[in-house]
Lab assay of single mutants.
Amino acid sequence: ICKIPGCTKRYTDPSSLRKHVKTVH
């Protein structure tokens, strides 16, 4: 789960989550 407030994205893969946070936030 993405911990950024207001973001509801969920990831099972930690590397995908990290990439999401870097690119989207």
Rank of each mutant, 00 (worst) to 15 (best):
I1V: 10
H20P: 04
L17E: 12
V24F: 09
S15I: 10
Y11S: 14
K22V: 12
R18T: 12
H20L: 01
T23V: 08
P5F: 06
K3C: 09
D13P: 00
T23Y: 05
S16G: 08
H20G: 05
V21N: 02
G6V: 01
S16M: 11
K3M: 07
K22D: 15
P5R: 02
C7R: 01
P5L: 01
S15Y: 07
K9S: 12
R18F: 08
K19T: 11
T12F: 03
S16N: 10
D13S: 06
K22S: 14
I1Y: 07
H20Y: 00
H25V: 02
L17A: 07
K3S: 12
C7H: 00
S15V: 12
I1P: 00
P5W: 00
T12Q: 11
T12P: 11
K22Q: 15
I4F: 12
K9I: 05
K22F: 08
G6N: 06
C2V: 02
V21W: 02
K19A: 14
K22T: 13
K9Y: 14
G6P: 01
T8R: 03
K3Q: 09
K19N: 15
I1N: 08
K3F: 10
K9Q: 11
T12S: 13
S16H: 10
T8E: 09
Y11F: 14
K19Q: 15
K9P: 03
P14R: 05
C2D: 12
I1Q: 04
P5Q: 06
Y11H: 08
R18A: 15
P14A: 13
L17S: 05
V24Y: 07
C2L: 02
C2R: 00
T12M: 03
H20K: 02
P14M: 13
T8D: 15
T23S: 10
H20N: 06
D13R: 00
I4W: 05
S16F: 07
H20I: 02
T8Y: 08
C7M: 01
D13L: 02
V21Y: 06
P5H: 03
V24G: 12
P5I: 03
S15H: 08
H25L: 01
K9F: 14
C2E: 09
K22R: 12
S16A: 14
I4E: 12
V24W: 06
H25W: 01
H20S: 04
P14W: 04
K22Y: 13
C7S: 02
L17M: 10
R10T: 15
P5N: 04
L17T: 02
V24P: 05
Y11M: 11
H20W: 00
I4M: 04
T12N: 14
D13W: 00
K22N: 15
P5M: 04
L17P: 07
C7W: 00
T8S: 09
V21T: 09
L17H: 05
K3D: 14
T12K: 11
P5T: 04
R18H: 13
K19C: 13
S15E: 14
C7D: 04
C2P: 03
L17Q: 02
S16T: 10
K9L: 05
R10D: 11
R10S: 14
H20A: 06
R18W: 12
R18C: 14
T8Q: 09
Y11N: 11
K22P: 03
K19F: 08
K22C: 12
C2A: 03
H20F: 00
V21Q: 15
T12I: 06
K19R: 11
T8M: 11
L17G: 04
P5C: 02
R10W: 08
K9V: 10
H25N: 03
I1T: 05
T8K: 05
C7G: 04
T8V: 11
H25F: 00
D13C: 03
K3N: 11
D13Y: 00
S15P: 03
P14D: 12
L17W: 03
V24C: 12
T23H: 06
V21G: 06
I4T: 09
T23D: 13
K9N: 09
R10M: 13
C7A: 02
Y11P: 07
C7L: 01
D13F: 00
C2G: 04
H25I: 01
K22W: 11
R10N: 12
V21K: 00
L17Y: 04
L17R: 00
P5K: 01
Y11W: 03
D13V: 01
H25E: 09
G6I: 01
R10C: 13
K19W: 07
S15R: 06
T12E: 15
I4L: 04
R18E: 15
Y11K: 09
I1L: 05
P14H: 06
K22A: 15
T8F: 10
V21D: 10
K9T: 08
S16E: 14
S15F: 06
H20C: 04
K3T: 10
V21R: 01
K19G: 13
R10H: 13
Y11L: 10
R18D: 15
K22I: 12
I1C: 08
L17C: 04
G6F: 01
D13G: 01
R18G: 14
S16W: 02
C2W: 00
S15A: 14
R10L: 06
Y11D: 14
P14E: 14
T23Q: 13
H20D: 08
H25A: 06
I1S: 04
D13I: 01
H25M: 02
T23R: 07
T12D: 15
P5D: 05
K9A: 15
C7T: 01
I1K: 03
V24S: 13
